[in-house]
């Protein structure tokens, strides 16, 4: 109970930092994930989040500091590469997207695991702080991290507001959008890049393995409550942020626990709570 009061009074500057970081992370993933769920591509988020592992490892090997913008850049590069690979092979071969998703995911992750063992041998087991990347460690967010998390979140929200109409159109009726001259491929590209960005900052809180939940679950909750896209996006962002807050509380009180699983449990409880409801708000 003491921990609870101490945490939620936000008097500790470190707590404020972590809470702000995870809430922003949750809000980004929640809102971006909504588009992935609506276009039935939510497992692509899973692929991207597993695939950024080797990118982070390479960035760490090039510049061995455990947190910072270079890890984010490494994550972005690997995430985009995996998305491009999955897209390329599924357009050019007989194989279905699901098979290629699984293939890309496991190959990238396999490379990541190789690199992790390499790092553990060459930089000492103490640098196994990289473990936090697998299952998340919200409490490890520091001032530098918060700076780039904020910048990335600002970019994501700005793009969501700017391109809202185009995103809505390509999500619900890509054929129509194409026919009236909307550049569907470009906007899809932007949307995918934003997803990779959201995932790349999200691993701080939930880790690469469970990132998919942070993309998927908030939008399910909000879809239960509304059927207007802008409202769905807002609720998703809120739900994502709330789960981030709860996750950082767990990470604060139980430092040995990985944060990711707890965030996922919080999210799933919210999903099961709203499943019986159906669209109480909005004009349905």
């Amino acid at each position: 109970m003491n921990d609870f009061l101490q945490f939620f009074s936000f008097s500790d500057p470190n707590v404020r930092l972590v809470v702000l970081g995870t809430a922003l992370i949750g809000a980004c993933s929640g809102s971006i994930g909504t588009f992935m769920v609506l276009t039935r591509k939510s497992l692509l988020g899973d692929v991207v989040s597993h695939s950024i592992l080797p990118g982070i490892c390479v960035a760490f090997i090039l510049y061995p500091v455990r947190s910072g913008i270079h890890l984010f850049i490494g994550a972005m590069v690997a995430g985009l590469l995996s998305g491009i690979a999955a897209d390329y092979f599924s357009r050019k071969s007989v194989l279905r997207p699901d098979a290629l998703f699984a293939l890309v995911l496991s190959v990238f992750f396999g490379l990541g695991v190789m690199l992790i063992t390499y790092i553990q041998q060459n930089y000492g087991a103490g640098q196994a702080g990289l473990d936090a990347i697998l299952f998340g460690k919200a409490a490890a967010i520091n001032q530098d991290d918060l700076t780039y998390i904020t910048v990335v979140a600002a970019v994501i929200f700005a793009c969501l507001i700017l391109f809202f109409r185009s995103f809505r159109m390509i999500t619900f009726n890509a054929g129509f959008a194409q026919s009236i001259g909307v550049r569907v491929r470009i906007y899809n590209g932007i949307l995918s890049s934003l997803t990779v960005m959201a995932v790349a900052i999200g691993i701080q809180a939930v880790g690469v393995v469970l990132m998919a939940a942070l993309l998927i679950a908030p939008s399910i909750v909000s879809k239960a409550l509304s059927n207007r896209l802008w409202l769905i996006l807002l609720i998703s962002a809120f739900v994502g942020g709330l789960s981030g807050l709860l996750g950082s509380f767990v990470s604060y009180t139980l430092p040995a626990m990985p944060t990711g699983p707890w965030i996922v449990i919080c999210l799933s409880l919210m999903v099961f709570a709203v499943l019986p409801f159906r669209r109480k708000f909005g004009n349905s």
Binding site: V37, S42, L43, L210, A213, M257, P258
Partner: peptide, 27 residues
């Protein structure tokens, strides 16, 4: 069966939940 979830989101949701429970139990 719920109108809220398609197959992909159902898979992504349930497996992460079960895996999370597993990871917590392991810790």
């Amino acid at each position: 069966k719920s109108p809220l979830l398609k197959e992909d989101s159902a898979i992504g949701l349930i497996y992460t939940v079960l895996f999370s429970i597993g990871v917590i139990l392991v810790s």
